[in-house]
Design a protein around this nucleic acid. Structure first.
Lengths: 230, 230
DNA sequence: GGACTTAGGGTTGACATGACTTTAAGTGGG
DNA sequence: CCCACTTAAAGTCATGTCAACCCTAAGTCC
């Protein structure tokens, strides 16, 4: 058996990451979900857009690998990172057999993020993507569904925001992700009832109206991902 | 580079399955969760118990691989099969680097199941396991948590039962999994409100009391696993 | 000072939930 | 044949949650 044969015989393992951030929509100006894609520079699917990722290195954790691609494509560290799913259909790649373990991440779009956009990295509105390479369209759809489901029963919205934020900003995140309008009063009650928000005692000044109180997120629930929760 | 070196360099990929079934507890006689384990016949952890599984074959699906080990260890086809998590810590196996994609399955314990128990396969009460090889204790704990969480908001309990069942039997499954007592009247209301149960029109005869109506499960919600839902 | 805007709190009605009661329909025993 | 016993199945009621809505507070801008 040759070296190449030994490699061909085995299934190769990659880690990809769906990276979400909030930015204003280019037309409507409303906050929407964006994600960075990488243009493929080789076959298969050369020239098409794909999720950032790469083969799992022998000295890397799964989450570590996801964090690594995240840093490479956005220059940022994630505020939230969770394993999404392992995709392993036989036909997902035309020639070789690849199993992809996909993570999803939430980042806050700092000024930094724009500077790091490399030659082959570009951000897209998550709900208006071009056709993607491999099964990546299906993967993004699943990640979107998971994000939209999870934000309704878990306090992860703060991961899109800086350390201190107002309830209106937090509500804006929910509205942007879920693409709905939420009642401010009911949202406030529900958010405060979750026991995960701590008032900083200060108010945000410089608004043209009543100054809103600032809050900080305080971890209430532990993560439910076995690997990360150590 | 030698063939061995080429193999060593790469991360190997395995698929394991946590298989749940309900059987009476050996002491209390109450229904409890059981799962089959396989005794390891080689190092590392030789002689210890581990989850059934094996390396991912090049021509196998992920779910297909899980189904395959399921058939090998229990002789059964699963009524429910879902991906649990991909475990890939650097230290999970002492010598080589293994990433395990773990599935969990629900089966109904037919007469068949007992006959197939092989030399190195043995069923254990899920909450009273011996020390397991690798990180399999952690994996089982996670699978148990997932099952107990999911049964409360998803109709999967029927996967432990034959095609037709009474509400009392369905409630007994919930009680066995969650290890609690549930009010029969409230459980009935909740179960019927879920719109996933169809009355067969017949009643179970031969009981020493009022004959209960039989129901059949009718899929209401689609699966939320992207790979399986095709 | 008054219009305007958002913060923040209160009210109400629809609905789900848990604890409990009542009636129905079978068996088995005296 | 009547009665005790068991579980099925339906109903009642108090509580809690949630969405829709209204109202007042506290700033800015003109």
């Amino acid at each position: 058996m040759t070296v190449q044969a030994a490699i061909d015989q085995r299934v190769s393992l990659a880690v990809s990451t769906v990276i979400f951030a909030l930015r204003p929509h280019p037309e409507s100006g409303l906050m929407t979900l964006w994600l960075p894609l990488v243009r493929r520079i080789r076959e298969p699917y050369e020239g098409q857009w794909a999720l950032p990722g790469g083969p799992l290195e022998a000295d890397e954790d799964l989450a570590g690998s996801a964090r690594h691609t995240l840093e490479r494509t956005t220059g940022l560290a994630p505020n939230y990172l969770e394993q999404l799913y392992a995709f392993g259909s036989l036909d997902r790649s035309p020639d070789d057999r690849v199993v992809s373990i996909v993570y999803w991440a939430l980042v806050q779009p700092d000024e930094v993020a724009r500077a790091v956009d490399g030659e082959n990295v570009e951000w897209f509105v998550a709900d208006e993507l071009p056709p993607l390479a491999f099964d990546h369209t299906e993967i993004v759809d699943y990640a979107l569904a998971r994000l939209r489901a999870k934000i309704t029963y878990t306090p992860i919205a703060h991961a899109f925001l800086p350390r201190e934020f107002t309830l209106a900003e937090l509500r804006a995140v929910h509205e942007a992700v879920l693409r709905t309008h939420l009642d401010p009063a009911n949202f406030r009650r529900q958010a405060l009832a979750s026991k995960t928000l701590v008032p900083t005692g200060t108010c945000l000044q410089g608004t043209s109206h009543r100054p809103p109180a600032l809050f900080r997120f305080e971890a209430g629930l532990p993560s439910n991902a076995p690997e990360e929760r150590r």
